Simulated scan of single mutants.
Amino acid sequence: MHGQNIFLNQPLAIDKNYLLSTIANIISGYQQKNFSSAESILQKAQSKIEMQANSAVTSGADVFPVVLDINGPIIKYSSWYYLGTQDIIAILRRLDRNSSVSGIVLNIDSGGGMVSGTAELTHTIKNLSKPTIAYTGGYMCSAAMDIASGAQFRMANPFADLIGSIGTMLSYQDFSKMFEKWGATIYEIYAPQSTEKNKEFRDLQAGDSKAYEQRLKEMTADFISRMQENLKETLKDDELVMKGKTYTPKQALSVGLINEIGTLDDALAKF
């Protein structure tokens, strides 16, 4: 399933430093014209799973765990270099129906991404019949932390980067002055009946962010509620964890964002 990712001027569940590096990477990809097609991104993910299955069968195993990589910014549709949440959902549902799969490890390294599509993936993970572990050897922040909360168990490598960053933000860019510098004249004319059309955006351009702040408030409330429901009694609220703070693996363990510190092999050994 492929479509258009709206990454700029949209609500994001992402760590700010990670966002800046992601945008730089995307711009570089556009300039160099070296992005992969959605089909090739999906095929690469499927090939990795097939290699794991072939290796297990060769070793004589009847059942085996599968590692599914979730790396880079969380986006809804497979694009640029990254597997989208819609394709991840489809892969997970196929794995859940496969009687040879004993469990699924979500190997996450992401600082977050789009709000759109994230809650659906979290819901899918939570309702899989196979046992699931969310593991990170790098970043598990914001939208990626949301996704990890859907798993039955969460682990981090002792040398992982950061975990947490629960919350949402809007990164807003107005390109009108750049277009005007290039000689463009921009007109916006609205029908008299269309007083609410693009009102949030027009208010923001005028310096009034209240409408967007309310929208972000509602999204973040949903995010926090989902985290509280999914992490349940393991979560120890330090009065910062639900306000966007990031944690080292040891700190994340102490507040209950993860259940254990260990390696990817340790995670696989649980199945």
Rank of each mutant, 00 (worst) to 15 (best):
L42V: 15
I6P: 04
K130Y: 01
A45I: 11
A56G: 09
K16F: 05
T248D: 04
F179A: 12
I189P: 02
T195P: 00
A221Y: 01
A45D: 13
L8Y: 08
T118A: 15
T118I: 08
I49Y: 05
T22I: 04
S47D: 14
E200S: 06
A61D: 11
T168A: 10
G262C: 02
N98Y: 09
Q86A: 07
I26L: 08
L231Q: 07
I133L: 00
L264F: 02
Y82R: 11
N25L: 14
K44Y: 12
F7H: 04
L20I: 09
Q31M: 12
V255G: 11
I70G: 06
D109Y: 04
S40L: 00
N71E: 15
A90I: 12
V105C: 00
H123G: 08
C141I: 05
S129H: 10
F153C: 01
V115H: 06
G244S: 10
S79C: 14
K197R: 04
A269H: 12
I261G: 07
I133M: 00
L204A: 04
A134S: 01
P131E: 13
D222K: 10
A61Y: 14
K250I: 08
S254L: 07
K199N: 02
S37D: 15
R215Q: 07
A143T: 05
G164N: 08
S142R: 01
I41A: 05
Q10Y: 09
P73M: 14
I147A: 06
Q10E: 04
Y77L: 08
P73C: 07
D203P: 00
A221G: 00
R215K: 09
D109V: 10
Y82W: 15
F271T: 03
N25E: 14
S21T: 10
G183F: 12
N98G: 11
E239M: 13
S99H: 06
S116V: 08
A38M: 05
P131R: 07
K177D: 12
Y212Q: 04
M145L: 13
I224S: 03
T248F: 06
F175L: 10
G137W: 13
M178Y: 05
V101F: 14
T234S: 10
P192Q: 14
D238W: 09
E39G: 03
G262H: 04
G167E: 14
G207A: 10
L170M: 11
A267V: 01
S129D: 11
S99I: 15
D146I: 12
L12I: 12
M227Q: 03
N54D: 15
N230S: 09
S149G: 15
E120M: 11
G112W: 05
G183I: 06
P249K: 05
K126A: 13
M155R: 00
I26R: 06
K236F: 08
